[in-house]
Nucleic acid binder design. Sequence first.
DNA 1: GGCCGATGCGGCACTTGGTGCCGGGAAAAT
DNA 2: ATTTTCCCGGCACCAAGTGCCGCATCGGCC
Lengths: 235, 235
Amino acid sequence: MGTASTNTPKPAMRDSLIAAAFQLFLERGYEQTTVDDIVTLAGVGRRSFFRYFPSKEDVVFPDHEQCLADMTRFLAASADADDPIVRVCDAARLVMRMYAENPTFSVQRYRLTREVTGLRTYELSVVWRYEKTLGDYLRTRWADRRDGTLRANVVAAAVVAAHNHALRHWLRSGGEGDPLAEVDRALEFVRATWSPDAVADAPAEETEDVVVVITKRSTPMWRVVREVESSLGES
Amino acid sequence: MGTASTNTPKPAMRDSLIAAAFQLFLERGYEQTTVDDIVTLAGVGRRSFFRYFPSKEDVVFPDHEQCLADMTRFLAASADADDPIVRVCDAARLVMRMYAENPTFSVQRYRLTREVTGLRTYELSVVWRYEKTLGDYLRTRWADRRDGTLRANVVAAAVVAAHNHALRHWLRSGGEGDPLAEVDRALEFVRATWSPDAVADAPAEETEDVVVVITKRSTPMWRVVREVESSLGES
DNA sequence: GGCCGATGCGGCACTTGGTGCCGGGAAAAT
DNA sequence: ATTTTCCCGGCACCAAGTGCCGCATCGGCC
């Protein structure tokens, strides 16, 4: 899974357009760069730019469409057994992984989106699509639950907010540190607030020798013990 | 407070532009209406439109700027005594009240934003400013708290999501029923998840309901139990 | 009452993002 | 080798948004 399957046969022109665009954006700013500037630097026709990118803003977020498709497939391939909240948290990790793949590119783009209002707005629409995808998944999983759609919307928003919190902290630091660990911490906060104190499905792969159990103060001690024991027993 | 204080001296032209715009938007669609169409119907010059509205989208959301200022003032006028979460929930109610003031207008706008992508994106940027305002407030209130900014971001997102849930449900029903009651229900869900169910009394700061236990498989169980118990005892 | 400055409105001219359309050329199918 | 298909480039064009300037109207001030 991860980053496989999807084919990008010959995106030579597309990549050169992205490269030319970012070169100009970084040296003279986004709004000071026209599409004509980009295509002349890339040596292609103006019409071809809009063939690969529906708008000028799209060239700044070239991989989000792909990532969104990955998330949709990931959620569609989930079983009824696993905790929905854990599932959407894992889905959010997919996005963070995409950012972490190209740290320098992500940081450069972050600086752009912070300064240019239009780009921030565009990013908002992208984030909204992620949130909607997560919300739709939770809504179907909690169709029978009381206040299921309200719960789905709130949890989806919380997951996105936690993800963005970790992401922005990492981007502001210039791409230092482990973004995956940060998003794990943030998402764990969200999971702990809603998912019952069950440990859920410990990653199993990542276990090593350490066992993490999260519980609430109100949980009786014998349940905590049983939770730790079961966590030790499996995997 | 509420809807007082702010002065709108002579918005004659501004109002006529809004009226003309919505008339055309509703009868032939947003994208099929040019700014020239609006100004000719309103009987004013094209340049005047952009004097009152920085962009074509702004005419669809004429009162959000005012509402955002109201929310900012409302949060700034809060005391340290009241629960921050209750405060941001009340702030969200302000927005719902604004929508509820003109039901038919709100419903018409809702239909537009559902169909036109550009308007939905614009609305997202408005919602983002609300969420940022709430988040900034919570951040300062929880400056000393552990994971204060993460908590602030997540709670702000949850409040906005709950508000939007109630709002959209009301708008989809065509403006029937009491939107204030609906948003109360939704916000109560959010408040109950974080703010201890005590309505007021015990400050009980830093209760931190969640306990994280990290141990190794090799650790004997009695040590784990003692660790958990000591963790529960302190703080 | 006559003069004058500020303010608001309208009319250009212009830039830029974005689209429809068509012609040409290279590759691929036959 | 011919034909079909697909990709690219070059127009022409539309609409959003901005800068600039002229004009009118309204207000204060002497």
